[in-house]
């Protein structure tokens, strides 16, 4: 018995619109979470190398706390648990703006922020300590040395692992379906349920994730090329000029 492939179910009826909505929600969810995760990651990653013990301890607590709990548990916590202890005004705001979506943003941000933090800490620690000394020796403050020297160099060094982490974030955003966010995986399942066409629907979902990830990877590769430091070896090629 052969399975009769019907690819047209992907765009007939409501299905096409659902998939597009799913893609858009996945992009919005991932992009917002990515921005917050990068912010948290840069801040806590930098603090983990700071020359002040209490700041280092604080950042270490953040990282160890948030990366050592499964993402699924964080999603449930931020969706079912955390809103209960919010003040009234906060709950009202959430209910107006879609509590599932924002809980997922928080969960993805803190979890991937903690993981990003490790990437950034490793990047900062691989910048020679002597560059930090050279910059404070000219009279820059510790904060300026981080902002102007250490972090800009570290960010260039960590583009490959940060890309990896960003792709993980995008893929992990699919877990948000468990708290009812209508993102891509959710919509794929919905198409499958309504049409009973599992193979076509899931193939479409797979390919869309693949395309999204490859796009991000190639954008990051462009960024890496654009930020390459002239004269330094990059990707095995000595740059001209």
């Amino acid at each position: 018995m052969t399975y009769d492939l019907q690819w047209n179910i992907l765009w007939t009826g409501e299905n096409g619109r659902w998939l597009l909505e799913g893609i858009w929600t996945t992009i919005r969810l991932s992009a917002l979470s990515w921005i917050f995760a990068c912010g948290l990651g840069v801040l806590s990653g930098a603090l983990r190398t700071a020359p002040f013990r209490p700041l280092r301890a604080l950042a270490t607590c953040y990282v160890e706390f948030f990366r050592n709990v499964p993402l699924l548990v964080w999603l449930f916590f931020w969706y079912f648990g955390a809103p209960q202890v919010l003040p009234r005004a906060g709950q009202d705001w959430l209910n107006l703006h879609g509590p599932e979506f924002w809980s997922a943003v928080v969960a993805l941000s803190v979890y991937h922020g903690a993981r990003m933090s490790e990437v950034i800490r490793a990047g900062i620690q691989s910048v020679p300590k002597t560059l930090f000394e050279a910059s404070v020796a000219t009279g820059l403050s510790v904060g300026q040395a981080y902002r102007l020297i250490l972090i800009p160099i570290a960010l260039r060094l960590i583009i490959p692992p940060a890309t990896n982490e960003s792709l993980n974030l995008l893929k992990n955003s699919s877990l948000a379906l468990t708290i009812g966010v209508a993102e891509l995986t959710f919509m794929t399942r919905q198409v499958e349920t309504y049409t009973a066409r599992a193979f076509e629907a899931l193939t479409a979902g797979t390919l869309i994730y693949l395309v999204l990830c490859l796009t991000i990877a190639s954008v990051m590769a462009q960024v890496e090329r654009a930020l390459r430091i002239p004269g330094l070896i990059a990707r095995g090629v000595r740059s001209e000029s």
């Binding site: 002597t130 560059l131 000394e133 404070v136």
Partner: peptide, 19 residues
């Protein structure tokens, strides 16, 4: 920081900002 601004330092390994 103000005092360091008055003191120039040159290192064996140059330590220029590579970027």
């Amino acid at each position: 920081t103000a005092l360091r601004a008055e003191i120039g330092m040159v290192f064996q390994q140059f330590n220029l900002y590579p970027h």
